[in-house]
Computed example of a mutant assay.
Amino acid sequence: MSTAPLVCPTCNSAHIVKNGKIHNGKQNFKCRECGRQFVQDPQNKIINEATKTLIDKLLLEKIPLAGIARVVGVSEPWLQNSVNEKYQNLPRPSGTYKLKKGRLTIQCDEMWSFVGSKANKQWIWLALDVETREIAGVYVGERSQDGAQGLWESLPAVYRQCAVAYTDFWSAYDEIFPCKRHQSVGKDSGKTSYVERFNCTLRQRVSRLVRKTLSFSKKLENHIAAIWYFVHHYNASLPV
């Protein structure tokens, strides 16, 4: 029995060539006339809830999106769109989940990252509650007075009103944080050891923050959301 000739679904041209295979092993074709890529008898794959739950967990590990797509057997475009939607709907709380009454002390620090290329530096400003070990504030931007202002505004009101803040000697903190409740200290003091340790955790768990990586962010929005996504998980996983 003869089969119908393969034609482009866009322009109906029969000038078709093979163009590799897609993620599930099916032959991919390309039209020489209009450039359209397609497969024969395409079938929409339904991603079940178990796979989506697994993807949520893998996003919290140091695995690039291409690696996650290979592990769970989904296409990279679908995964990227799914992650974009998840990140867009991710809340940006300006407080912690288990805030306790009493004296509040925070440790603040900044860590270097980039988006697109290393020329586009994006500094991650963090504030960590010493008592609960939760991340109380996050801001991504320049390492300048504006960055310190962004971190300050990300803190819950109760921290801005009464918390004592320990930071390094970066001058931007002096311009923003109240002088009576702000102390600049060196690493040897141990007063910023918790937030410095979290910096290490963040780099180890979020692949786009590794210093030498091919998994860097292409969009600033996703860069910020990926950090928030891990912060949500980190805060929720701390013991009560």
Rank of each mutant, 00 (worst) to 15 (best):
residue 105 T to Q: 13
residue 157 A to T: 12
residue 145 Q to G: 00
residue 109 D to C: 03
residue 150 G to T: 03
residue 111 M to S: 12
residue 143 R to E: 04
residue 157 A to G: 02
residue 140 V to K: 11
residue 128 L to T: 00
residue 114 F to Y: 15
residue 136 A to G: 10
residue 129 D to W: 09
residue 115 V to R: 08
residue 150 G to I: 10
residue 115 V to Q: 04
residue 146 D to M: 10
residue 134 E to I: 01
residue 113 S to W: 11
residue 134 E to N: 04
residue 134 E to V: 02
residue 122 Q to Y: 10
residue 158 V to R: 10
residue 150 G to E: 08
residue 141 G to V: 05
residue 130 V to H: 12
residue 167 T to D: 01
residue 142 E to Y: 02
residue 159 Y to R: 01
residue 122 Q to I: 04
residue 135 I to V: 14
residue 153 E to F: 07
residue 137 G to A: 12
residue 136 A to H: 06
residue 101 K to V: 09
residue 158 V to L: 05
residue 117 S to D: 12
residue 147 G to I: 01
residue 157 A to E: 13
residue 146 D to T: 08
residue 156 P to E: 06
residue 102 G to T: 08
residue 111 M to C: 05
residue 105 T to E: 15
residue 139 Y to L: 06
residue 143 R to C: 06
residue 168 D to R: 06
residue 101 K to M: 11
residue 111 M to K: 10
residue 126 L to A: 01
residue 106 I to K: 01
residue 154 S to R: 08
residue 155 L to Y: 00
residue 134 E to F: 05
residue 100 K to L: 13
residue 149 Q to E: 14
residue 154 S to P: 07
residue 124 I to H: 04
residue 134 E to Y: 05
residue 108 C to E: 04
residue 142 E to C: 06
residue 161 Q to T: 10
residue 138 V to M: 14
residue 135 I to Y: 07
residue 165 A to D: 02
residue 117 S to Y: 03
residue 160 R to V: 07
residue 168 D to P: 08
